[in-house]
Amino acid sequence: MSFLEIRDVHKFFGEAHILRGIDLDVELHQVVCLIGASGSGKSTLLRCINALEIIDQGMIRIDGERCSGSGIDVDALRQEIGIVFQSFNLFPHMSVLDNITLAPRKVLRIPMDEAEDRALQLLARIGLADKARDYPDRLSGGQQQRVAIVRALAMEPRLMLLDEITSALDPELVAEVLNIVRDLARDGMTMMLATHEMHFAKEVASKVCFLHEGVILEEGPPEQIFGDPTEERTQAFLKRIIDAGRL
């Protein structure tokens, strides 16, 4: 039994059939990269896993426990699963420190000073301790995204979902964000990444999945997917990436 089991998941947005039967297993400490064109369902799949979207058919299990369908405790589920968005979504009316401590204080009921100590430790680890009292608008995009990652980590999740977290960043800021992800991978965090950074996927992924029109067309170790893809669609996709100079 895998840590995360996704079985025959379907999702509709009105008439549009976005996910058309996704099957995927993620083991503990694995880093799974989802690649594929825009609209192939990468983001939707991540959002379904932590129940930001309700799946229309299928089953998702974490550690053997059902975490989709009716009667599940979504708030408890989301404490186990951190997600970081392309657009950071920091809370602009709160300082960096408050952004990070809000959920630990309100959800886990950790006392203020304890939550702040922990947040400051995390910020120190990513080199942003001096920004603790600043508001998000004063930070660069890369700094904001690093804070967003720390905000998710503060809940001590068992699974992290990263939804194209470098796509909104200026190129020179991408590395500082990816470095944190690399550190997390080394520390053994279980992660799923939707990404367009193929170099990075090649480097950190234990498994790469190519999504096309709502199904996982091909999955395997990065050497195989990037080096010797069997599906024609995967080959075409990778060729476009190489033509654009991105691999």
Binding site: G82, I83, A103, M155
Partner: peptide
């Protein structure tokens, strides 16, 4: 208020009413 704010709050485990109140 952009829906991403609510999504971010909910994804951290805050309930709907907590998300409204704090975010």
């Amino acid at each position: 208020v952009h829906w991403g704010q609510l999504a971010a709050a909910r994804s951290l485990g805050l309930s709907y009413s907590q998300s409204l109140r704090h975010v």
